[in-house]
Design a protein around this nucleic acid. Sequence first.
DNA 1: TCAGGGCGTCAAAGTGGCGTCAGGGCCGCA
DNA 2: TGCGGCCCTGACGCCACTTTGACGCCCTGA
Lengths: 235, 235
Amino acid sequence: MTVAKGVAVTTVLVVDDEPQIVRALRINLTARGYDVRTAHDGAAALRAAAESKPDVVVLDLGLPDIDGAEVIEGLRGWTTVPIIVLSARGDSGDKVRALDAGADDYVTKPFGMDELLARLRAAVRRGATSAAPAEEAVVEAESFTVDLAAKKVRRDGAEVHLTPTEWGILELLVRNRGKLVPQKQVLHEVWGPAYAGETHYLRVYLAQLRRKLEPRPSRPRHLITEPGMGYRFEL
Amino acid sequence: MTVAKGVAVTTVLVVDDEPQIVRALRINLTARGYDVRTAHDGAAALRAAAESKPDVVVLDLGLPDIDGAEVIEGLRGWTTVPIIVLSARGDSGDKVRALDAGADDYVTKPFGMDELLARLRAAVRRGATSAAPAEEAVVEAESFTVDLAAKKVRRDGAEVHLTPTEWGILELLVRNRGKLVPQKQVLHEVWGPAYAGETHYLRVYLAQLRRKLEPRPSRPRHLITEPGMGYRFEL
DNA sequence: TCAGGGCGTCAAAGTGGCGTCAGGGCCGCA
DNA sequence: TGCGGCCCTGACGCCACTTTGACGCCCTGA
């Protein structure tokens, strides 16, 4: 899902060369809060998919340029995004080919909008559960490990308890491991936009984190201060 | 997939009360190398699913005992196994209900065997990629056990009665065992989107759960509060 | 050599979250 | 109509976390 301002918006790519179908889908999907992108032929569909990273694709088989099965294969080469095939041809050979090429569902025209929407929800639901695990959830430093998914920190096997603020800082730095994170960014993301000047907070909390995590808190090896600039997490 | 001697065998659970349908499916699926299990009513289906851990379920909606949507919900309570619904009724209301209850696909009788097999392959393919690390239906903590399929909790052999709200919280935490679940997520998933600020509810209900489940409710070992962040279930 | 800014450290408030208990309202069931 | 289970609400004490202030160090530039 595309995430904007903390709200997950589902993006749907509609691929069809019949304007009235595209129009009907756009109206219905937009009304239900989906972000709708469209493409009118196979080449445009592949481009649009690569670009807008949709959460689900609705694909008509009768495209002017490329055969539908090839579009499916083109997508399946690099993404597991759910694909719902629309087709006027109801014969079973087409269905079998499309599904075996990698489509997730097959709906015959004319279709009921209710049914299509329900199948769309089902496809998105599946996509959401299977997609996730991308990012590596557990990061290992020399003297401690950070589990970003479980929000746990372990040191010498024992779990270390962090307060919400401590965790917020550590998470931010670990997600940007190796990179310098400016003071302003830390303050902004952990405390909020109104705290850009409270650099003293950072000194206090970084000291606390080092005391809890560093083998030698006064000679930090992982939670590095870059004077005047910001902080950096090193493995 | 069930793995035996290095060879992956796909297990299909067929649920239908019409013997000739079951027979036709058994013959066709077995011929293609699937391991076929069958059930003739909803109760048996839920039992068989918990027992044989199928890779895909083919479910007829017109069962003699339980409504089809309830069977789907019963399965979805603890597993993400793909479910393909078969139904004689082609009307769109049924389709929408079944799909929204958690079905993955919907095929209207009479169906072509080719098409059903293609949809089955598509469902299995998806299931294989998403294949979460085989979630267990029954989770054992030190002092109690949670049966996600049966929605039951046992402590010292005796069943513990939970209210719907208590169960909702426990289920959510157990499904995310080890992971921290933010307060907002608990409120959102148990009470609904409008209750994001009612953190007091959580304190009351967590106390109730601890009183019922923890050996030492004031020193919880399994239902852990992470102050300011959320809750965590530990085995 | 001195002044100043940035940083680390320690300790002392204060305050907000948490656990707990008890009461009240609602709804389904007898 | 009464009863019991369940959900919600309010009050209160406690503790952990956040915030704040004071102080000394180091480095840099004047």
